[in-house]
Amino acid sequence: MREHAAVVRGEAVPRHRVDALLKAVPARDRETRPESLARAERQRRRWATQVVVADELARRTCEEQGLAPPEEVSPSQVLEVAGTDVADMGSIVAATLAHSPAARLLLTELEKQQEVPEAAVKDYYDRNRDRYLTPDALRRGVDPFGRPAPADFLPYEQAREGIARELRRAAGRRAFFDWFDQARASVVYAAGHEHPGDPSHPDHEHRH
């Protein structure tokens, strides 16, 4: 069996890194039939390979951009992945950010680079007025879509910073997704380590 799981920019990513991550992250599947369990384990290995490859790509990108290289990641330091993060980002990206200090550093840098126009912040405030009712208005059960008084809402000046931060964070995540898609395009995977959604293998499933 090959000793590498993938080749990133001409350099092999050792298979033992994937094995270590699999050991650190307990299987969630509860299949009991041998064939179903075997399939689940094959998919789990492919999923873990994506996380390890993403960490490798992130570390190299951080070095290229002159960002302070993070400490080597230890599989035993895998953080808990919130269900909301999986829903928002997909299991591979969510697990990568939990597992990889380099990925978190890169995401933070991408968020800093995002420019949010004032018009976009104001538009968000105007379209989501229900999110900016004052505590008093909420206690009184004011309907934000009825006939609320201007005083029932937080002033735009007070809400602006939080909105800009939220929009910048969302833009940073989109930039991270774009980076990941482009960075992994040239990765060559060893047999059994392909992307879980790769239609070239019979067990594929499109579940990010």
Rank of each mutant, 00 (worst) to 15 (best):
E109I: 05
R174H: 11
F145R: 14
Q113M: 08
A149G: 00
G162E: 00
G172S: 10
A82K: 15
L133Q: 01
A151R: 15
V78R: 06
E161G: 11
A87D: 14
F177H: 13
V78I: 01
L138G: 07
R160C: 14
G83R: 10
E161Y: 15
H99I: 01
A95E: 04
D178N: 07
P144R: 05
P135Q: 05
E161I: 15
D130C: 08
Y125F: 14
E166L: 07
H99V: 05
P148Y: 07
M89N: 02
T134C: 03
K122F: 06
M89L: 13
E161N: 10
R168Q: 07
I163D: 00
Y124R: 04
F145V: 06
D123T: 13
G146M: 00
P135F: 10
A98R: 05
Y132R: 00
V142I: 14
A170V: 03
A137Q: 12
A87N: 13
A103N: 07
S76R: 15
Q158M: 13
G146D: 08
A120C: 12
R131T: 02
A94L: 02
Q114F: 02
F180C: 13
L154H: 00
R168S: 05
E161L: 15
S100N: 09
E80P: 11
T96M: 10
A185K: 12
G146F: 07
D123A: 12
P144E: 08
N128Q: 08
E115K: 15
D130E: 11
R165P: 05
R168N: 07
E166D: 10
E166Y: 06
E166A: 13
K112I: 12
Q182W: 03
R140Y: 04
G90I: 01
T84R: 10
L133V: 07
G162L: 06
A94P: 08
F145Q: 09
S186E: 08
D143R: 14
A95L: 06
D136S: 13
S100H: 05
R169A: 12
A102D: 06
E118A: 12
A137D: 06
V116L: 12
A102R: 08
L107M: 06
A137I: 07
D152Y: 03
A149S: 14
R127I: 07
I163P: 00
F176E: 00
A103S: 09
A164F: 09
A159V: 14
T134A: 03
I163F: 05
A119S: 13
E166I: 09
A94Q: 11
P101S: 12
R174N: 04
S91D: 07
T134Y: 06
A103G: 07
Y125I: 11
L107R: 01
G141I: 15
L105T: 12
P117L: 04
Y124W: 08
A120E: 08
R131F: 11
V81L: 03
G90R: 04
D178Q: 02
R147M: 13
A159I: 14
A183Q: 10
L105C: 09
L138I: 14
V93E: 03
D136M: 14
F153I: 01
S186R: 15
D152P: 08
V78K: 00
L154Q: 01
L167A: 01
D181R: 06
H99L: 10
G162H: 11
W179D: 03
L133Y: 14
F153V: 04
E157T: 05
Y156L: 15
A98E: 12
A103E: 08
R173W: 15
A149E: 13
D152L: 00
A149N: 05
F176I: 01
Y125A: 01
A102H: 12
R174C: 05
K112R: 14
